[in-house]
Design a protein around this nucleic acid. Structure first.
Ligand SMILES: NC(=O)c1ccc[n+]([C@@H]2O[C@H](COP(=O)([O-])OP(=O)(O)OC[C@H]3O[C@@H](n4cnc5c(N)ncnc54)[C@H](O)[C@@H]3O)[C@@H](O)[C@H]2O)c1
Ligand SMILES: NC(=O)c1ccc[n+]([C@@H]2O[C@H](COP(=O)([O-])OP(=O)(O)OC[C@H]3O[C@@H](n4cnc5c(N)ncnc54)[C@H](O)[C@@H]3O)[C@@H](O)[C@H]2O)c1
Lengths: 208, 208
DNA sequence: TGGGGCTTGTGAAAGTATTCACAAAGTAGG
DNA sequence: CCTACTTTGTGAATACTTTCACAAGCCCCA
């Protein structure tokens, strides 16, 4: 099977979110043009994206909202719960642990880790902060799907090494560094400084 | 002048970060191959990226670290301070306002806004939380370059409308919605749920 | 001062992604 | 059942990005 472009997968997320909203507003069908308008793309793009995975619509009518919702959830692997740990109980780690937008989408934060003994043992919303040195032991008994990395840049690569050694296969990285991982580990990075710099570039290049 | 790809601008940020580290470690020159290794790309890509903006290296030798650092800073528009406001003093807005990684790169958080009267008037690190309804008045006296949007998804589009009306030309959006803005306003979105779904997709498609 | 070794800068080629455009398949209404 | 209309699914065309490959330029040392 052909490799699917990252941009396609991201758009599927966007379509899914719109479909969930449509369902709540009682819509039963939706056209590629409507999906496009809300996703900031074109109807041809929507149809092409979906066509990589199959044929989900009815010609002349559009897509059934519940059916397409289920199909995209399946494609994205959202038909199950994913166990997530947050590494780094600092400012951003705390915000993420307390965020209630992940659970409804199937991402379940099962633990928060830190190296600071002053933080280990505290708890928020029923999630205890555990000692990061125990992560390998913990993962042996409770399987983890995704680790969210929210530690300072200096410690990030070392923390990744330990997570990978413990068997983690997917990492969402907030530290502003380029992580090195084996090819069987998936990484996505959120780099806010980079986004701000992108805006800075746009503002500057427009002025020119 | 030809439009520069987004991916190129992002890589420039990555190169810049590595150059800053190199400078601290006392290096005076660096080759495209070294930049590539740390940026997770290829040396040809590095040279091509830079070639869009000029010719910065010395053949046979590489790039002067301080000169290339300055050149990239210039390209990205980082030769000045940018005034930033954060809209939404919730979990993520608080983390961002207290984050100390933005100031050294020239992004200066000058205000935080919220609509919740219980939060308005409180202050962290010398930044007072102001009433969002006053944003237009405030911006008239103090110019703002970038607004960081950290409000719930439902309120995001309306907040954007008000910011755009007040003259804001760049927005970094954390709400999981596709914002609609006029063409002269730059938007970047950080959508964490989408990143997690991307990881979910990768994990699932590998298993298949 | 000239040659060997290295690295840049860049057209051209290859590879990806998006857009076009239209046949095919469906709906709706008489 | 037939006609007019809508919207999908998809090859082909276009646009964009990355990789290749090599001449040109510069350093260093003999
Ligand atoms: N706060 C933000 O808004 C923000 C924005 C952009 C990027 N980031 C990035 O996110 C990361 C975290 O930022 P923050 O502001 O939350 O920092 P922070 O200093 O508030 O928190 C970092 C936490 O990580 C813990 N830690 C350190 N090393 C660790 C390790 N090896 N294992 C486990 N825990 C460890 C520390 O004890 C601390 O509690 C940084 O890389 C930062 O650059 C943060
Ligand atoms: N917290 C996270 O880790 C996280 C992760 C991903 C995405 N997000 C997104 O970031 C946004 C904020 O999330 P949060 O967890 O900080 O929420 P929150 O509820 O903690 O904070 C939202 C804040 O925005 C304020 N607000 C509401 N409407 C406003 C308006 N029109 N103008 C100004 N302020 C307004 C509220 O009073 C509140 O203080 C949401 O869209 C959320 O989906 C948050």
């Amino acid at each position: 099977m052909k490799r699917i472009a990252d941009s396609t997968v991201r758009r599927l997320s966007v379509y899914l979110r719109f479909l969930e909203g449509s369902s709540q507003r009682g819509l039963t069908t939706v056209s590629s043009a409507e999906l496009a308008r809300h996703g900031g793309t074109t109807s041809a793009q929507v149809r092409k994206d979906l066509s990589f995975f199959g044929s989900f619509g009815k010609r002349g009518l559009g897509y059934s909202v519940p059916e397409l919702t289920n199909s995209i959830r399946d494609i994205l692997g959202l038909g199950r719960e994913w166990n997530v740990v947050i590494v780094g109980a600092g400012k951003i780690g705390t915000a993420l642990a307390q965020y209630d937008g992940f659970r409804p989408r199937g991402f379940h934060v099962v633990a928060v880790y830190d190296t600071d003994s002053g933080k280990v043992g505290t708890r928020w919303d029923g999630i205890v902060v555990r000692d990061f040195s125990q992560v390998a032991r913990d993962l042996a008994s409770q399987p983890i799907d995704i680790a969210v990395l929210a530690v300072p840049a200096e410690g990030a690569q070392d923390a990744v090494r330990r997570l990978v050694d413990a068997g983690v296969k997917a990492i969402l990285n907030f530290a502003p560094v380029q992580l090195k991982v084996p090819p069987d580990v998936a990484v996505r990075s959120v780099n806010m400084a980079m986004e701000l710099e992108g805006l800075s570039y746009e503002l500057s290049s427009r002025a020119r």
